[in-house]
Amino acid sequence: MKTEILKEIIKKKSSKQQFAVLTNLQNSNSEIFELGKNLSKEFENNKTEIENYFKLKKNGIIEKTEIFIQNYIKPINVVVVGAVHITQYLIDFVQNLNFEITIIDPRKYFTTEQRFKNINVINEWPDEAFKKIETNSHTALVALTHDPKIDDPALQHALKNKFFYIGALGSKKTHLNRCRRLKILGFKDEEINAIHGPIGINLGGKSSPEIALSIISEIVLENYKRN
């Protein structure tokens, strides 16, 4: 691989759009592939197969060729509402798993830079904050304030925008009340039932890092279920 290609891949990664890197295993020449992009002579004969692997996000040697394709997929974004203690542990897990993270909390004393260095923290109410980020079916919501004023609007946004994971912190009783409020607002039972509450896989622990682990485990599980 040429150093220029390496630099090009690194640059491309920051654009956060899906792309692939093709490598000819007979001479180690590489190039970047995106849908609609013309391929060099080296790869153009296998354009259809390359596109198929790209659409399926499949990595590997393309059948009956000496071409290796590696896809770079847009990472899922975990939006955490509530810059609380659990959130600090969630950040480490999320980053090690190559997910993105965004933290929303209108309470300024929670979101000091000291607590969340180099993290995208939006210091606004959820309704305003969601105008500033792109959310879709690749987004997960983790609502941790257990304050309906802050959590509820975020849950509504997540339900409407079909997040693949929605979890909310709180006891069974808190969750029942939450479901009741959402029902009054017109959400259907099946939508409300998709909210994970109490949040996380029940590992038995109650400490902040243990709760963070149980939440991230549930997100990983749900992410694989849909793929």
Binding site: M1, T3, L6, K7, I9, I10, K13, K16, T23, K57, F68, Q70, N71, Y72, I73, K74, P75, I76, Q95, N98, F99, E100, N223, N227
Partner: peptide, 26 residues
């Protein structure tokens, strides 16, 4: 599933900048 934040290539680039010879294994 997502390789965007895997930073091995960035690390390779840093090594190259400091004049090391780098082999990439995949």
């Amino acid at each position: 599933k997502s390789l965007f934040k895997e930073n091995i290539l960035e690390e390779a680039n840093t090594w190259i900048k400091s004049n090391q010879k780098v082999v990439l294994a995949t």
